[in-house]
Design a protein around this nucleic acid. Structure first.
Lengths: 144, 144
DNA sequence: TAGCTTCTATAAGCGCCTGATATAAATGCC
DNA sequence: GGCATTTATATCAGGCGCTTATAGAAGCTA
């Protein structure tokens, strides 16, 4: 099993589908959409963005991002700022409450994951830890 | 690293969050919601259900399930049937097109995963395969 | 300055969710 | 048997989140 050959793709897909469902359930229920969280994370990681840049990075249309930013602004999670060099542009910045929300979510997720890992057998835990770098590289393969 | 001790939960959470985002992007774009797919899978796996049973299993409200079943029915993916012993009940059954959609999705997912795995280094692929049973058990820890 | 392009906002519409409420069928109690 | 209650589903009002099409303001260029 631990060879480098190609596995049964169907079995792989079933395992990953189950993991995916589990990951969805692991997601903190904070009444905020996946796109909203992802957008906040982008702002945290890469700094302020033009609204249209955000739309591209998050894979939604510009009107969708306009609406999302409006909701984020209304909820105090992000701010609309102007670009002094171009009056058309809206620069979106992460607000403090947005930063707080992200760390709260991360903490909650870490907490739940930690509990789950603690409930696993030692060798299962070791296998997952050993696979983490590989899983990171797997995730790297689809960044769009 | 490959010991059985508890890892840094934050690092774990970050890795899993990235995996989660990737898994979302791995999801075939079939213009059908996650809940819809999950509902079809439930019908496939566990057979016909009352509408209200489905709502509970999928974690949505009964009105949400009423609407979802209406859309599934309209799209030919599921059918509303009557219960001869109780005139109030709506029994939801998977239609052939629903079954077809599920297998098509599975195939597409397997295909994409297979490509991704093929792009990994041999030892990365081996590490992930070795961790699969452990990941399955991790998923088992989450309630239905 | 006139006209094109770029950036954001608005409008209309659908999917998908919620809570509150309506309706029909089954059940329980007298 | 008749009537109130419970149960199963449907409907309604409203909000989020997405789409396409379009409007409007600002910048650019000839």
């Amino acid at each position: 099993m631990a060879n480098g050959g190609n596995p049964d793709p169907t079995q792989l897909a079933i395992s990953f589908e189950r993991l995916f469902i589990s990951a969805v359930r692991l997601n903190p229920r904070t009444d905020i959409s996946l796109t909203a969280v992802s957008t906040l994370r982008t702002l945290e990681r890469d700094g302020p963005h033009r609204l249209s840049e955000l739309a591209v990075k998050e894979g939604v249309t510009q009107p969708a991002m306009t609406q999302l930013v409006s909701r984020l602004e209304r909820d105090g999670l992000a701010r609309r700022c102007t670009d002094p060099t171009d009056g058309r542009v809206v620069v979106v910045r992460l607000a403090d409450a947005g930063r707080d929300l992200l760390s709260a979510r991360r903490e909650a997720r870490a907490q739940r994951l930690s509990e789950l890992m603690g409930a696993l057998a030692d060798d299962d835990r070791a296998a997952i830890l050993a696979a983490l770098p590989a899983l990171d590289r797997l995730a790297d393969l689809l960044p769009p």
